[in-house]
Design a protein around this nucleic acid. Sequence first.
DNA 1: GATGAATGAGACTTCATTCAT
DNA 2: CATGAATGAAGTCTCATTCAT
Lengths: 207, 207, 207, 207
Amino acid sequence: MATEQVRAQRRQQRILDAALRIFSKRGYRDTLVDEIAAASQTSTGGVYFHFPGKGTLFLALLDRTAARLREKIDEAIASQTDPIAKADAALQTVLRTFSKHRALARFFMVEALGAGNEFHQRVLEIHEDFIGIVRRHLDEAVEQGVIDPIDTEVAARAWFGALHEIVTHWALSRGPARLEDTYAALRPFLMRSVGAAEQPEWSGSRL
Amino acid sequence: MATEQVRAQRRQQRILDAALRIFSKRGYRDTLVDEIAAASQTSTGGVYFHFPGKGTLFLALLDRTAARLREKIDEAIASQTDPIAKADAALQTVLRTFSKHRALARFFMVEALGAGNEFHQRVLEIHEDFIGIVRRHLDEAVEQGVIDPIDTEVAARAWFGALHEIVTHWALSRGPARLEDTYAALRPFLMRSVGAAEQPEWSGSRL
Amino acid sequence: MATEQVRAQRRQQRILDAALRIFSKRGYRDTLVDEIAAASQTSTGGVYFHFPGKGTLFLALLDRTAARLREKIDEAIASQTDPIAKADAALQTVLRTFSKHRALARFFMVEALGAGNEFHQRVLEIHEDFIGIVRRHLDEAVEQGVIDPIDTEVAARAWFGALHEIVTHWALSRGPARLEDTYAALRPFLMRSVGAAEQPEWSGSRL
Amino acid sequence: MATEQVRAQRRQQRILDAALRIFSKRGYRDTLVDEIAAASQTSTGGVYFHFPGKGTLFLALLDRTAARLREKIDEAIASQTDPIAKADAALQTVLRTFSKHRALARFFMVEALGAGNEFHQRVLEIHEDFIGIVRRHLDEAVEQGVIDPIDTEVAARAWFGALHEIVTHWALSRGPARLEDTYAALRPFLMRSVGAAEQPEWSGSRL
DNA sequence: GATGAATGAGACTTCATTCAT
DNA sequence: CATGAATGAAGTCTCATTCAT
């Protein structure tokens, strides 16, 4: 029994992994369920045993990866005390994760929105969730007087937009991975934009 | 003779307009050529008479709209003298154009990348073109000593990312249009990010 | 008036010529009416002004070329006195004509039957017409005691079949034209098959 | 496992059978894949599961039927010792097979070449294969001194042409089947054409 | 539970024919 | 009369999903 459950879980895992790989390479619409099945060492029916359909599988993948990313972000934030450092840690975590997993980056930043109307809502929610995190810490920074009062909603959105663009560009270009270097270059702009002082000491410790 | 050419051009125009409307509502893949035909008051064959295929039509639309936007941007830039004001004018133009034409915004910011791999190249080129414009003026600002030396490549990309995010969010949300207000709130961040002084006088004149 | 009629006739001619060329190159189904129009230096509508439709054009071509071939055959037959020589002259005429006009050969021998059910009847009639000619002269040869009594229906059909195969093979192969040589080699077989003596004197004079 | 393979093979068989029936009735171009599907008690997708496309299906049919015919011919030839008898057996086999299966005759003799340029090559190969067989045995007959030296290439082609014409005529006419009688009448001509003596004893035994 | 053959609605595209200019 | 843009029916093929084995 337990063995079977484990087997089932592993298969589900394999399917999700394969789906991520193929969705991010071909996009949602150009990905065939049969391709995912083959790449998961399963059959068409096997995929449908674990997931009700292609759309559901995509959504499950979105949720799973978002949750994992969220966990990492929360951890990274918890390890910081300064509110600006917390916000920065959130961005860095996203970036470092994507940097190690280009398919994930592409899946999240390009294919998720491109999959079609039916997924927009969920993708936006995930984006808003992240923006909310950043915003909350910027708010705290304002409250603590670390930075001057600003429109943190807009600031957080701008930060996310900049991050999004950098990751997208990297994910779609064939060049060598230097995502982290780019972020190192980006951070001063983000900091200045909210009137925060440079904090070079983090970059050494985390990147 | 001339009459026929005019007629043909109008029909082509109608097709492109309809295509923009429908592509931006449904996305590339969920748009049927027949829908475009119906919305253009044409027939299926009519669309194919003017465009070799769905993909080509999409690409033509991309190019046409990019070219028009580019023209507007160039005009706006020409009307400014200060390099920072020029860069800002570029952003404002994009934004004001989209603000008046939500379908266009969605088409460019969401559906273009979502249409599939075959279009990525072209979309990226368009993005890079815009980023290049902004960058060039930031470079000038540095040269003229208006701002301190910075990595203008990253700065321009960050600006574009912020703009992209704001437009995307607005285009996909059902709320009332307040895109220009959002940009007014965003600009201070962009200015601060490159160490430029606030320039309140523009906002009054143009927005 | 007369001028216009001449113009119309010339155009019709051009259309028929172009149609023959293209039908025999691409086959009936793969030939576009627009191709014929372009090759005739006319427009789509131009073709439809002269012919009610693609099928009718094909049929008209079939009839026109069959009639011309028939005329030539009749002439050739009239120039001979011996019944076997007359039958042979019929075959030689077909062959010589095709030899000079590969497209015609292919049109008649390959594409005519391949055009579809709707043309079978007419093509068969033309074939039967030719077989009838040959047969009639073989009958005469029997009556005159030139050859022994035989089943002339079958003999004529066999002769036509042999001719058809040789022409088809030549028309579809890319090799150099040596159709007449092949017929020179074929004739002895045909003659022997009906018990006729070799008649070498013709070959020199006509081929 | 084995059961599934058998099922698949049967379905493929049904599709090929239906395809032969319909292709030979309507011709390649006028045959709808959906018709074949319906006649095979399958679905459109079912046909495409077993064959990559309509053209491939046609080609597969061509190859399958050619191979079967070839087997029968080889058997028939092996059962004879005299080279002329072997050549004759080849023709008789084709004829007897077609006689029992009018659709097959029409498919091979009419529709195969009419299907379009893309199939010409293959059809010609099959024709040449058959002609080669006949020729080889005629060559042998010459070597053994059974018949006088002749151009066996032309002779074999003429024989094939005669056969082709007779079968085509029969296949396209609506009259009752008397194909074998026609061949009985044709054979003397073929024999005489190569200078072979009549061999009436076969006709009784085989036809 | 797993498999993969089968389904069938639906997409894109073609092209003979028409008709306004 | 000629033109060629426009029509729209129809055909091939795809692929998410189902279900018998």
